[in-house]
Design a protein around this nucleic acid. Structure first.
Lengths: 228, 228
DNA sequence: ACCTGAACACCGTTCAAGT
DNA sequence: ACCTGAACACCGTTCAAGT
């Protein structure tokens, strides 16, 4: 979005009036750079070179700001991923879009899991509900399937994001998973646990996420009325 | 000095030496009473009538304490729910046990969604993996199915807990959902959205959670080798 | 109306000093 | 060895005062 032409220019047009939009934009930038713990009201004021109280003129609370920032990331993603004819394809594309967005902005994962009816979560609900309906589900079954899918997507994304947060690069991740698998296998005599531990370092979160979406889709289809 | 002449001895053997166990116990009690924001190191020291630094002698960090508290709640639940012969039944019992525990201790929901490989999450992984295997899934398919189920359970529980946190009693919840459904239906012309909004106030989170588990189970069975 | 920045009431964590 | 509690370096939020 912002194209930095050089290191000389630090603050972008600070003469502009403050607005909710500009504050949310700054928050997203800070969250991407410094993580969730880096988002402080003081950091936002420094970024926008303004006073503390000015922020509260446009934003109710820090939680409000976090939710708005999450919405700012999720909204465009849902818009981009929409528009598939095949409903199952549409669901996969949406789910993957959300996953990738959270992979790129881990703090979004934690935020979406925190509030059930924040704007970003409602948007996800709506965008997944439409293709689910076209899959032949409606009424209470649609509500159940929609809740299950949304909860799975948010849960998986949150877990992945939490993992990404504590092992940022692939090498660290690999090392961490191997250590964990080793410990796991050592602590437990169960052969099943050992087998699962062995698979831990090699697996790809994104593929596994998609496999979960497919399991879910298979379940919905099989319950909706069997196969044709 | 503090003179506790109060009603017949409220604190249990405060002469006992401090220990990790006693600190975790106190944390659980505080979290249940005052919620996540009520858990401060100062509150713990007050509860145990000790100094700040003493806590850090037995616990590495506040996050460590939170994770241990979650483990203290989840562990017994998993032990109680185990031991069903029928694997599908076992999975339902475990999932429901976790859901109910999080319903009773909402802070656990937020905590489990935060760290992917904390002890409590590993325990959940193991306890769900065994019946899944007995359902006829193994190898990579087992890892995929296990991840999907765990992520769904944790995601749904986190969302439910977040909802429970902001609308504690049934009346508040009802009112909140009705307001939300109204707003939702007003903002959106889509008939599908309106239909879903109408179902919102009447639904039961626990039943919907179980419906999701069943969708998932149907998906696993249908992918594992079709129906007999 | 919008903004400033000092002040308030908190945090988690550390550490010299006690027993 | 275990514990104390003052001190440190932070927080989010408010509010009288400025423009």
């Amino acid at each position: 979005m912002s194209f930095m032409t050089g290191p000389a220019q630090r603050s972008p047009r600070r003469s502009d009036a403050l607005s909710r939009e500009r504050i949310v934009e700054a928050a997203i930038q800070i969250l991407d750079t410094a993580g969730e713990s880096g988002l402080t009201v003081r950091a936002v004021t420094a970024h926008l070179s303004t006073g503390r109280g000015a922020i509260y003129h446009h934003v109710a609370t820090k939680d409000d700001l976090l939710a708005a920032a999450a919405g700012g990331v999720v909204g465009p993603v849902l818009a981009d991923a929409a528009g598939h004819d095949d409903p199952a394809r549409a669901i996969r594309a949406l789910a993957l879009g959300i996953f990738d967005a959270i992979d790129a902005h881990p703090w979004v994962g934690a935020q979406l899991a925190r509030e059930p009816f924040q704007p970003a979560v409602l948007q996800i609900w709506k965008s997944l509900g439409v293709p689910l309906h076209r899959l032949g589900v409606s009424g209470t079954a649609l509500a159940d399937a929609g809740a299950a899918l949304v909860n799975y997507v948010l849960g998986a994304a949150a877990q992945h994001a939490a993992g990404a947060r504590q092992a940022p690069d692939d090498a660290a991740r690999q090392q961490y998973l191997e250590a964990l698998a080793g410990q796991w296998a050592r602590d437990d005599a169960d052969s099943l646990v050992r087998e699962s531990a062995g698979l831990l370092p090699g697996h790809d979160d994104r593929e596994q996420f998609l496999a979960g979406v497919d399991i879910f889709l298979a379940g919905v289809v099989s319950r909706a009325g069997g196969r044709p």
